[in-house]
Design a protein around this nucleic acid. Structure first.
Length: 425
RNA sequence: GUGGGCGUAGCUCAGUUGGUUAGAGCGCUAGGUUGUGGUCCUAGAGGCCGGGGGUUCGAAUCCCCUCGUUCACCCCA
């Protein structure tokens, strides 16, 4: 056992898992960039106040924040999510709306780790600021939906709801609070505590004891203003038009207080654990203003990378293998040929690796096999003397010896042409 | 923060009512093959039995504490 290990709720993403991880983000980026979203990279930490706008009644703010005083006396917090940072960035830089951005990166919440829940956890997501159109809600939801389809997840369901505008929401919370107070004798102790802080969240309780009270609770639908109801109906109609299946769940409340109007979650049916929400989002029309910017509507979603990959494991999709190398260079004469040949091949655009420490032919062949390389280029004493090299096809075991000067052209004929790698803007 | 399960080799796990030198498979290294991988055979390396304390002639095994991990509540992606 080594002296140090990762802190609770954090872990190393090792190969080959990290490769799969990167591939997942690439699929996401390709999808949203083709819809006009550009990448944003906000800082990992911000002034604590930025995140307090998530809501004083939320656990994320009250007890899960990684916060500290820096050497300049500022009260800093590691970001628990991206949305507040994106809104702060909008308020700070005032880009021209509509502002469509996507992000990926870690967030931090001090929670007890559990299946699909970590203290450092990654999300990918998008946010759009400055557009109030219900068709944008549909676009945002469809991009999330399309991403799950793109990676091959078939057992994901979309649940949507509307929390109404700020006034509706307030009236609903009031009614809900009154209702639960009259049923307080049937509620669990924990639910009563939740009721004190935010009656909405009581709807989220998974305790069997609370089920009957929740079942009889008033629904949000009756509290929606004409505008909010029309907006929600338009969103549903848009999803219908795109043939995206969804379920309206009037009990869907989300944990962050800034949500208004459209809210949605993506639930994986393939995850047994309690953490089966693989993504979620909604409108947060008041957040930019809260952060000192102009009144600006906003909508977005965040998808949990960890949970999404867990769902992929469960559905046995989005498999990943490290791309096979083109060439493995074997040199039993001391290594100087391997040094120069791999260097030249890499410059020509071939992927190439080699062994070190002067290992035996057998050992180097094993390494070549493990590397997944398609061909081995072998330099032994004979080849060194004759200025030749032996090229072995590792899947057919056929091999041929050619003059060293013909190696590049021979590999091109066997593996196809390669372009030197360089950055092209 | 509350409650349950589990900590033995790099990985997955055996280890009997406490008994003397802690095992297997996979993986790794080397050899079988004086230049050739994936199969096979042989050998080797690799362990403070999570850590600390206690009970005992004797502890991987029993007790306590602690740390880690895992599952659930809670919360949320």
């Amino acid at each position: 056992m080594s002296s140090f290990q990762t802190s609770p709720g954090t872990r190393d993403i090792l190969p080959p898992h990290a490769g799969r991880w990167r591939a997942l983000i690439q699929v996401f980026a390709d999808g949203v960039e083709s819809a006009g979203y550009q990448n944003i990279i906000p800082p990992l930490f911000e002034d604590l106040g930025v995140f307090q706008r998530l809501g004083d009644a939320t656990d994320v703010v009250t007890k899960e924040m990684y916060d500290f005083m820096d050497k300049g006396g500022r009260h800093i917090a590691l970001r628990p999510e991206h949305t507040a940072s994106v809104c702060r960035a909008f308020a700070q830089h005032r880009p021209t709306p509509p502002w469509k951005v996507w992000y990926s990166g870690p967030n931090f919440r001090y929670e007890r780790p559990q299946a699909g829940r970590f203290r450092q956890f990654d999300q990918v997501g998008i946010e759009v600021l400055g557009v109030d159109d219900s068709q944008l809600d549909v676009e945002v939801i469809s991009l999330g939906w399309d991403f799950y389809q793109a990676i091959g997840l078939s057992n994901v369901s979309l649940v949507i709801n509307s929390l109404g505008d700020a006034g509706d929401r307030g009236r609903y919370i009031e009614a809900l609070g009154a209702y639960f107070t009259t049923h307080s004798e049937t509620l669990s102790e924990q639910a009563l505590a939740t009721l004190e802080r935010n009656p909405l969240r009581v709807l989220d309780s998974k305790r069997p004891q609370d089920a009957s009270a929740i079942a009889g609770a008033p629904a949000i639908g009756a509290f929606l203003s004409t505008d909010a109801a029309a907006h929600f109906a338009a969103v549903c109609a848009g999803l219908d038009a795109l043939n995206i299946p969804y379920v309206v769940n009037e009990r869907l409340v989300r944990g962050l207080d800034y949500y208004q109007r459209t809210t949605f979650e993506f639930i994986s049916g393939s995850l047994d654990s309690a953490q089966n929400a693989v993504g979620g989002g909604g409108r947060y029309d008041g957040l930019v203003e809260d952060l000192g910017g102009p009144a600006t509507p906003g909508i977005g979603f965040a998808l949990g990378v960890d949970r999404t990959l867990l769902a992929c494991d469960a559905e046995e999709c989005f498999s990943y293998g490290f791309p096979a190398l083109d060439v493995f260079v074997i040199d039993t004469t001391g290594g100087s040929y391997a040094l120069s040949i791999t260097h030249q091949l890499r410059h020509s655009g071939f992927s190439a690796d080699r062994a070190f420490e002067g290992r035996s032919m057998k050992s180097q062949m094993k390494s070549a096999d493990r590397s997944g390389a398609q061909v081995a280029v072998i330099i032994g004493d004979t080849e060194a003397e004759e200025s030749t090299c032996t090229v072995r096809n590792l899947s057919t075991s056929e091999q041929t010896t050619i003059p060293s000067t013909e190696l590049q052209s021979h590999l091109v004929s066997v593996l196809g042409p390669r372009q030197p790698r360089r950055h092209t803007p």
